[in-house]
Computed example of a mutant assay.
Amino acid sequence: MDPTSVSERENVTLICRTKCTLDPITAYSWYKNGQPIPNSNTSSPVYSLFSVSSEDTGRYSCAVEGHEDLPSAEETLTVTYGPRNTSVSVSPSGEIMEGSSVTLTCSSESNPPVDKYTWYKKNVTSSKASGQSYSITNIISEDRGEYYCEAENTIASNNSTALMIIIAEKQTSVLTAAVGIIVVVLGVILASCLSGFMWFRKKASKSTFDTRHTADDGQGDSSAVYVNISGMAMTPAAAQTVATFDQEQDEDVQPTVEQAAEEDPSVLYSTVNKPRTKKT
């Protein structure tokens, strides 16, 4: 059998030869990689393969029917083809943190093997790098985008599909966490302030109510003056003066003083009335 090396999609003819004298009606059997090829028994020493592909690559042999134990030597059929099934893988996978490194790897099937790899970034005319692997160190936000590779051998070339590189900005992540912490802290402080303010307002409102209540009680006579003399030592003359004023006070003031005294029994109130000018 004649050895053959062909390109993909070509037609191939295998011929079985022997030095023995054979019967004109001798049949032949064909084998691939040591296994019989189905429906390959023929009375002709010729076996044809049409539009070969990479699946037809292998070791072929033949034998004369009835002497299958004496097959021919194996000959290799080689089918060459350009790169195909080209793809890109990335390590590490997933979202890439800004400042870290990433490696892209190009894979492709071809015969003969790929002898040139070229890297491109989508929407950028010039190539980024060459070689089966492409590494980006200290990656930044400008490196995000779609990357693909071109695989090439002596027959043809083939591009992979584009792979998207997503980059997470480190500063954004830290800032987001910091803002979250600040919001929580401010919320706690604000809640504490509001609680203290409401308590203060409540206390202040009560004091204001007491003051207004006492003041309202004295509106019956705007000329009345209240003096807190609790705990003060009084001389006999001062006591006499107070007694004199008490005798001269109007009847409409007395309930007011008494009501004020009821507010706080521990405080002694004295009312001083301004002398009234007699009308002529």
Rank of each mutant, 00 (worst) to 15 (best):
V90L: 15
V52Q: 06
S43G: 15
P92L: 07
P24W: 03
A27M: 12
S91K: 13
S5F: 08
G66C: 06
S87K: 12
T76F: 05
S54H: 13
Y81Q: 10
G82A: 09
F50C: 04
S29C: 09
Y81C: 03
L70R: 07
N41V: 14
A63Q: 01
S53E: 13
S51E: 15
G58A: 04
S53I: 06
D69V: 00
T80W: 09
T78A: 10
W30M: 01
T18E: 02
L49E: 04
Y31G: 01
S29Y: 13
P38A: 15
V46Q: 13
V52N: 08
R17G: 07
T21W: 10
P45H: 10
S91V: 13
C62R: 01
S44L: 14
P92Q: 04
P45M: 12
E95M: 13
S54V: 07
C16I: 00
S43H: 08
Y81P: 04
C62T: 00
S44W: 07
T42A: 02
G66S: 03
E95W: 08
N33K: 05
I25V: 06
L14Q: 00
D23K: 02
V12A: 01
L22A: 07
S72L: 05
V46G: 08
C62H: 12
P36E: 12
S87H: 06
V90W: 11
N39R: 12
T18N: 01
W30E: 05
N39V: 03
S43P: 12
C62E: 02
T76S: 08
S61K: 00
Y60P: 02
T26S: 14
V79G: 14
V52S: 04
A27H: 14
Y47V: 01
T78P: 02
G34F: 02
E95Y: 11
S72G: 10
Y47P: 04
I25P: 00
S72N: 08
A63C: 02
T76K: 13
P83M: 09
V79H: 11
